[in-house]
Each structure stands twice: as C-alpha cells, then as structure tokens.
Design a binder for these strands. Structure first.
Lengths: 254, 254
DNA sequence: CAGTTTCGTTAACACTGTTTACGGTAAACG
DNA sequence: CGTTTACCGTAAACAGTGTTAACGAAACTG
C-alpha cells in the first residue's frame, strides 16, 4: 500500500486542483511585487478568506505550501539548465546549477526569502520536516554525490567526525538524497553540508542586499566562493574549464 | 562645525529621550517573543500609534532605527568579550568576536533577522546608507585591519581586482571602517568582504534554522568555517592556540 | 503677551489572520 | 432510489496591523 495516494474520486481531484490554484494565485501575487497574504490569495481565486481554511490550517501552512512548490519549480529550472551539459560531466552540471541558483535568487529575492530565509523555530518539528523533503536540497546533494563518484575527492571518515555530527550524517534531518549513499561513505554528507553552507551564505548575502551593489553586479564574490570549493571537491585539475563554464553562466544573468 | 549636533535645548533633549524610549520599548517587545509592531511599541510607551509618526516617517524607519541600535549594543557586547584578550593579540580578539556574534545570533534569532536578514531593495539608497554606518561592520573591519598590521597576510593588489570590485574597495558603500587604510592597501577590503561573507553565511544558516539542529548544537559547521579562514588571514602558525580560544568561547554558549 | 512650532489626541480607512455559525450541494450509503 | 453525511463555501465578527486627517493643548519664541 503506497503511503501517498493518488487522487481517484472526483472530489479528491477537485481538491488537488484547488491546491494548485492556491499556489498559482500566490505566485502571481509575488510576481506582482505584493507580499503573500492569505486574504489576497483568496480574493484572487474569487473566494472569501475563511474558505482557504478548508485547505490550510493557518497562514504559516499556506506559506510553507507555496514555498515548497516554488522550491520545486525553481529547482526544475536549474536542473534544466544543468542538463545542457552531459550526464557524465557532473562537475559542470554542479557549477551551472549553483550559478542558476544564484541568478534566480537575485532576480526573485522575495521568493528566495520565502524559501531560504524563512526562520524555522528550534522546536517546530513539522516545519523542519518540510525542509527535509525540500527539492533543491535533494538536487544539490545528488550532484555532489555524482561528482564524488567520478572524482573520488577525500571526505572525513565517520570516526573523524564529531559524535553529534556523526549522528546527523548517519540519520539526516536536513534535505538530502542520502539513501543511496553507503553508510560508510556518509562522511560525504559533511562535505555537502559545508559546501551548501558556503553557497547559501553568499547567495543570501547577495539576495538580501546586505552587500555593496557593485560587488553583487560584478558577481566576483559568488565566483570566488565557488572557485574556492573546486579544490575540496577534487576539481582542481578541471579548474580552468569549470571557471569558464561558471563565467558563461553568470554572464546570462545581466 | 560638526555634522551631528549635540542636543542643547530642553525640547531636543526630550526628543532624544523619546527616541531612546522607543528603542527600549521595541527591545522589550522582541525579548518577550512578540514581533515588532508600531502600535505595540506605542502602547508600551503609553502613547497612541499616530503619535509615533512624529518620530518616524513610517514602519520601515522604526525597524531601521531599532535595528541600528540593536546592532550597536550587540557589537558593544562582542567587543567587551574580545577585550578579555590583550590589544596586541588581535587574532584572538577576532576569533572571540566571531564566536560571540554567532552565539548572539543563535540566542536572539529575531534580533539577528531584524538586523542582518532584513531585505534591502536594490534601489533603496536611504536604507543602504544606514548599512554603511552599521557598527558591527566597522568593528569587524577594524579587527581584520589590526590582524593584518601584525601578520601581514597577502591580499590582492588593486590591479588584480575586477574593475568593478576595485571601485567598490576604493569608495566603499558597505559598512567598513576603511578611512585609515591607505589607498594602495585597499585590496585588503576584498579579504574583509570575503571573510564577512563566509561568517555571515554560516551564522545566517544556523540562526534561521535552515540546518540540522544537531549540527547547530555541535557548533562544528561554524568552527570549520572559522578554521578555514585562519590560513588566508596569516594565522596558520597560530592555528592550535586560536582554535583553543575558539572552542572555549563556543563552550560558553550552551 | 501674542504667535508659532511641537506633540499628542480621537476618528477613521484599508488592510491583515482567525473563529464562529450557518447554508447548500454533491458524494456516499442503506 | 431516497436519505444521510461530509464537504465546501458564505456572512458576520473580533482583534490585530500601518497610515492619514483634523484638531487641541502645551511649550517654546519673538
């Protein structure tokens, strides 16, 4: 018995369609530059506000819903760009995906903030669970895994890791497609976390605007961060080729 | 003639006191776990909401006001901790300040978000100016300058930098106490930007909770990021001593 | 003292999220 | 087939939010 049931009855299909409409209305709202509000979403659908409470328990759940879907469609966008490079060139794919992520974050800062800068309280397990299934997280983990399969860069052994971190890489809560990574190779997850932290950092800094606008426009801060990560990922030999790929992708932004 | 006038008349003193009271009320509100609202601040001061419009033009300006003051008092806190190490040991001071910044961000996530994750639109020059005078930015730049004075780590020459970045380091808009840095040494600002970007990244990731809570608790992600920056700052030889200082400071958080 | 600036008020508007009680309609069941 | 039940929407209301307008009193200024 599958855990996620595919909608069969007419009512279930209708309900599913309404969820899609909610997300669509929310995306329109964000694209118009307005901020996401439950009432505005309802109005745009031709409903009254309380009607939405048949679909989400509260405002936070609405935000999480559209954040999840936005993340999904944005990731699909980056993945499509990465697919311009062959499957046996995961390094190029990773670099391109990172650059796309950055360009997207700059062009849609409110969407970025909704997904990646939305505070998650320490005790809130429900919202953290949502993070665990985040599409972008799975996407980037998988790319790093593919890079490792090809380049075999070093990563810490399990007994080298801090005990608490060891637990975390063995039983991950964070978004990561780690099932197909052998348990003894889970030290790789530590590399993923560190690389993601670095990527997340620059992109957040640039997207929120806490940075000199000229530096953002130049793309040099982002570029330097990515270049610094080529060596730890075993891509030093490919450096020149990959920075060229990176620069090409960054140039598409302006 | 000084640009910032010291309040002389009775009215001006009164007005200044009211600003202080506004900030105090806002801080109380945040500490209580409520979110910052103009009406709530007014109510806590025994005023009606429209009265506050005699002091701030709109809500955003209120936010910026308390963000600026919060940044100032938080920085004072980190500086006091750094002062536990002698003035001729700027490396230890820098490490301690970074750790304090991180501990503060974890213990006061709403305050952190207010100051450092508050989106600044690309065109908004007024709010960007506020950023320029941010206390924490000046504080960290000055520390890195002091570290350089002692350890003389390498930094890019002006003609090695991207032209746009060169402009940015010569005429900085970002928060940085760069006046006393000789023009030919302004490449140092690039190191500052990169180091700040790295620090900002991990701390934002941890403070907003977009990370495995166990990893946050372990402090290893932050530790690794700081350790990676010892070498570029010419502190490789001092590595053992400084990581010990770092670990001691991190231990005070739990 | 008269005039003016400053600081606060009340009232109102247009929005938020959320709960309540109430219908109507469509699916499900005997 | 008819009856029942569950679902989906409504209107009304409450407690909030930021913001503007018109007005009054008190405090400084000539």
């Amino acid at each position: 018995m599958p855990h996620i049931r595919v909608p069969v009855t007419r009512r279930e299909r209708q309900r599913e369609a309404t969820y899609d409409e909610i997300v669509a209305a929310a995306e329109e709202l964000l694209d118009e530059g307005a901020d996401l509000s439950l009432r505005a979403v309802a109005a745009k659908m031709g409903l009254t506000a309380p009607a939405l409470y048949r679909y989400v328990a509260n405002y936070q759940e609405l935000v999480d819903l559209v954040a999840f879907e936005l993340d999904k469609s944005a990731t699909a966008q980056w993945a499509a760009a990465a697919d311009r490079y062959p499957a046996d060139d995961p390094a190029a794919r990773l670099v391109v995906a990172a650059a796309c992520f950055r360009n997207w974050a700059l062009s849609k800062p409110r969407q970025f903030a909704l997904i990646f800068a939305n505070p998650i309280a320490a005790g809130d397990t429900d919202r953290r669970d949502l993070l665990t299934v985040s599409t972008s997280g799975h996407f980037f983990t998988d790319l790093i895994w593919q890079v490792w399969e090809l380049y075999q860069f070093p990563f810490p052994a399990l007994d080298e890791l801090d005990p608490v971190v060891r637990e975390a890489v063995l039983e991950p809560l964070i978004p990561a497609k780690s099932e197909h990574i052998p348990i003894e190779d889970r030290g790789l997850m530590w590399i993923y976390m560190r690389a993601w932290s670095a990527l997340y950092g620059v992109v957040t800094l640039e997207s929120t605007g806490h940075c000199d606008p000229r530096v953002i426009a130049s793309g040099q801060l982002f570029r330097a961060t990515v270049v610094d990560w080529l060596e730890p990922l075993g891509l030093a030999a490919e450096g020149d080729r990959l920075t060229k790929v990176l620069d090409e992708e960054l140039a598409t932004a302006r």
